[in-house]
Design a binder for these strands. Structure first.
Length: 860
RNA sequence: GCCGAAGUGGCGGAAUUGGCAGACGCGCUGGACUCAAAAUCCAGUCUGGCUCACACCAGGUGGGGGUUCGACUCCCCCCUUCGGCACCA
């Protein structure tokens, strides 16, 4: 009988479904493992070959660990909100819900076709109101929390309100301080504005990335993706919901050290957070009581600050611009505003313009001119810098172009054409009150900061590149934000008991025509009247970004149908954290940082028990087309999983994707190689099953030969260790070696071949189940125990030792394991090949390594 | 420009507390089976030299240098590819 993969695979997929084979629950007697895939966005084009790579990897580990006695949580779901369904709706007026359901059905069919052992009773869908009800609930948790810098934790906003009532801002270091009585004197709107400065979710009017074609704003993290696709993004000030992720910058950075994640991913997160240590320094403005605050990482170069530069958007520019310069400055600001950040960055030449005003360098007491230039960004630090052209290349270029003075204040080699940005001893840095001369850079930093702090002119400061997360989108197909804007300007939240706040039905899907989302068109939904007091309001029309649903889905899997809580605490405690998480590297700073942030907030508020969600993370490498180029429709090199499974079967597909090479590496598809693993499975089939559909008569209850038994134990060992280390390619290679040897045997020991089926099963579960059944077993092998290996039987009895002369292999001999060194040496000296190369020359040195080699170093 | 990862046969890749380079698979070559083909099985396959052949010799893991009895593995410099960041003060 031929290996009829289609029949076999269908049979076992139905069996697993019917028997709910992979359904699991909490079991305190077993050790738990949580093995997670990044859930897919169910696009209209269906699964591509990249999906099964990660999914198969986790499935192999899951099946292996399950058989090794672990209680393994391995779920799947759908990240189903997103723009494509909404755009399709605008063209066809077909509700995104319908499109999404169809796409999910396709994905589900395709994933089931691969024989992945998910617990399908835990499937989640971010667009399901019973799911997004809790996304909205978590949003309200964030809205109703603030970050207490003293404990570095999120706390309920009520605690802040109490603190303000009791002692104002006296115990907090804040910009807008007030006393308790001032707080009490504030109007509700003023109080609301004050609290907004602390909430973890808040509304702010800031310059955002607006994309006209998409009709929505984008997060900083998303801009690149869309501009690459040819969309244009402009900065414009808009009122938007923000998430105060910056409050967690330090913890996101620190806790990353404990994660078993790819170095490059951790590095990307570190870069994105962008921590730098330095100081704030206030420069008094001449003829004014105001000052300009700058951030610098090199306060030690303060004596070299010969001018200042403000970002064109800096709020002080208006005040500083002198009458004579006003027209120039205005023109420059307009030009800068027109350019995008990318355009600004692309410019070779520095541009800028003098404001007509001067500041005082607090160290030298000199007057220094204040300029504006677009190489200073409003979005980082204070939007103003002290320019030290002697020790900053950008300032140097600017100073050269505009003939501004350059003063060297750090000792360096002679190079007049560039700034010296390294460290060194201070020079030209003596003032009346403080001197940095002859101090090393770190000492100079300490000294100057101490002086600045004493004089109240500045203080040490840690600055982050990370910005708060722009959280609202002008879209229909997303989670509604459960907030109501009342007519009097106050914000109300939709009570928890009224969640989920459902998306309204629309007669026609179309853009709102304004900067609002299409939700604005649902008049009945938008307009709100409080049933109790009759006050009127308007619902928030923005929706949440796609990242919202994926920020916490791993928690919902734990308790997917709980109607009272997002997740039962006892279950959460049992399953969390995620032990292994596999998904694409493209989420390194988006999903993976947002999810960590939300998780930390939930942790602070006592809703989850771990400070990090994902302990071990790996990325699957990109699968390229057969031509080693990225798969794309336009190149015509796209491989469709349906076709592959149809021609060779799911087991071959799984095996091939794992055999191609290391999981994390980028690698090209090869249909020839799929045939290779397909041949292997055919060989496995023929190893067990005859043409007449019986179990091969050569499989008998006999003891194995010593040689074959050793190979068996080696195989079990290698496959076990390789799965643990996610080295699936070498595990499969060992399975092939075992099969090739077994084929050669005239009689085959049944016990060992039986266990081989178990060892094969995580990789090729369908054929394994079929063989298992044909070997006379009644139950699925999914919960059979994983074969153990005997370390004593893995070891070779004899071993090949090489004899070298001057480091070159001249002979090899087979000797018993652990042959003593003296014996090896004697054998080597007797060896013909060795003798020939020693050729009577004196032996200067002997190196003998047991079980490895003998090396003679001889004179010439 | 800066940060990170990686360069091994015709191809995908194996082998690192420094100790036989090329496991396994693909492809290719030859053979068996067959009327023939497919499928399957067996043998060979890093390069060069020498040889009827076996054997033997030399070279070989992006390039150059170094450490070492011995380097794909460790150190320094350079080149290439991929990923990320990119006026972040």
């Amino acid at each position: 009988m031929k290996y009829e993969f289609l029949k076999i695979e269908k049979k076992w997929q139905e069996y697993w479904d019917r028997n709910r084979t992979f359904k699991i629950g909490e079991d305190p007697t077993k050790k738990k493992l949580y093995i997670l895939d990044m859930f897919p966005y169910p696009s209209g084009s269906g699964l591509h070959v990249g999906h099964p790579e990660g999914y198969t990897a986790t499935d192999i580990v899951t099946r292996y660990k399950r058989m090794s006695g672990f209680n393994v949580l391995h779920p799947i779901g759908w990240d189903a909100f997103g723009l494509p369904a909404e755009r399709y709706a605008m063209q066809t007026n077909i509700h995104p819900r319908t499109t999404t359901a169809e796409n999910i059905a396709t994905f589900r069919r395709q994933i089931k076709m691969l024989g992945l052992s998910y617990d399908w009773d835990r499937e989640v869908d971010t667009t399901d109101p019973q799911y997004y009800r809790w996304t909205q609930w978590i949003f309200l948790q964030l809205y109703n929390s603030w970050f207490d810098p003293r404990s570095k934790k999120a706390r309920p906003i009520e605690t802040l309100r109490e603190e303000f009532r009791a002692r104002g801002t006296s115990a907090l270091e804040v910009e807008h301080s007030f006393t308790a009585s001032e707080w009490i004197g504030k109007t509700p709107l003023q109080q609301q504005a004050a609290l907004a400065e602390y909430r973890l979710a808040y509304i702010a009017e800031i310059p955002v990335n607006w994309c006209e074609q998409l009709g929505t704003v984008l997060a900083n993290e998303e801009v690149d993706e869309w501009t690459e696709k040819g969309y244009s993004v402009v900065r414009r000030p808009m009122k938007q919901w923000m998430m105060r992720i910056t409050a967690y910058a330090e913890r996101l950075l620190e806790d990353a050290d404990e994660l078993d994640w790819p170095i490059s991913t951790l590095e990307q997160q570190r870069n994105w957070i962008g921590r730098s240590e330095g100081a704030h320094i206030d420069f008094p403005i001449r003829d004014s009581h105001q000052h300009i605050r700058v951030f610098t990482t090199r306060p030690d170069t303060l004596f070299g600050a010969t001018y200042m530069v403000l970002a064109p958007e800096h709020p002080l520019v208006d005040v500083l611009t002198s009458v004579t310069e006003r027209s120039h400055v205005e023109r420059y600001r307009k030009e800068a505003a027109r350019k995008s950040d990318v355009e600004r960055g692309a410019e070779q030449e520095k541009t800028g313009i003098f404001t007509g005003s001067y500041a005082i360098n607090p160290a030298t007491r000199e007057q220094i001119p204040i300029w504006i230039a677009d190489y200073v960004l409003m979005g980082y630090g204070t939007g103003a810098i002290m320019a030290v052209p002697g020790h900053d290349q950008r300032d140097f270029e600017f100073a050269k172009k505009f003939n501004l003075p350059i003063r060297r204040v750090v000792e360096a080699g002679q190079d007049d054409d560039a700034a010296y940005e390294g460290e060194g001893l201070g020079v030209n840095s003596s003032g009346e009150e403080v001197s940095l001369d002859a101090l090393s850079t770190p000492d100079a930093k300490k000294t100057i900061i101490a002086w600045l702090e004493k004089k109240s002119l500045g203080r040490a400061r840690v600055q982050f590149k990370l910005h708060d997360w722009l959280f609202s989108r002008q879209r229909y197909w997303g989670e509604p934000i459960p907030i109501i804007h009342m007519e009097d300007g106050t914000l109300r939240q939709v009570p928890e008991s009224e969640l989920p706040l459902l998306l309204p039905e629309l007669a026609k899907f179309q853009p709102s025509g304004t900067t609002e989302s299409p939700l604005a068109l649902a008049t009945n939904w938008v307009n709100y009247v409080d049933p109790a007091d009759g006050k009127k309001g308007r619902r928030e029309t923005n929706t949440m970004p796609q990242w919202a649903g994926s920020c916490w889905y791993y928690l919902r899997y734990i308790d997917p149908s709980n109607e009272r809580q997002f997740c039962d605490p006892a279950k959460e405690k049992y399953w969390m954290p995620v032990d292994l998480y596999i998904g694409g590297a493209e989420h390194a700073v988006l999903h993976l940082m947002y999810a960590r942030f939300w998780h930390k907030v939930l942790f602070d508020l006592g809703h989850v028990s771990t400070k990090e969600p994902f302990m071990k993370l790996r990325h699957q490498g990109l699968i390229l087309g057969e031509d080693s180029r990225k798969m794309s429709k336009s190149r015509g090199n796209v491989i469709n999983p349906d076709t592959v499974v149809g021609e060779y079967g799911a087991d071959s597909m799984r095996l091939f994707e794992m055999f191609m090479g290391p999981l994390e590496e980028m690698k090209p598809w090869s249909t020839r190689s799929v045939e290779g693993v397909f041949r292997f499975l055919n060989r496995v089939w023929r190893l067990f099953v005859t043409e007449e559909e019986t179990i091969d008569a050569s499989i008998q209850d006999i003891p194995p030969t010593e040689e074959f038994e050793k190979l068996y134990h080696q195989t079990v060992k290698k496959v076990s260790l390789d799965i643990e280390a996610l080295r699936f390619n070498t595990a499969i290679s060992q399975l092939m070696i075992f099969t090739n040897e077994a084929m050669k045997l005239e009689v085959k020991p049944r016990a060992l071949l039986r266990n081989f089926v178990l060892v094969l099963s995580p990789f090729a579960p369908h054929i394994a189940e079929e063989l298992w059944e044909r070997l006379g077993n009644k139950e699925s092998l999914a919960f059979e125990s994983w074969p153990s290996y005997d370390p004593g039987k893995v070891i070779e009895k004899t071993i090949e030792v090489v004899f070298q002369v001057n480091g070159k292999v001249r002979s090899r001999v087979e000797v018993p394991l652990d042959t003593p060194e003296e014996e090896l040496e004697r054998l080597a000296l007797d060896d013909v090949g060795v003798k020939r190369h020693i050729d009577g020359k004196p032996i200067k040195r002997k190196i003998v390594v047991k079980n490895k080699l003998v090396n003679f170093v001889v004179g010439s």
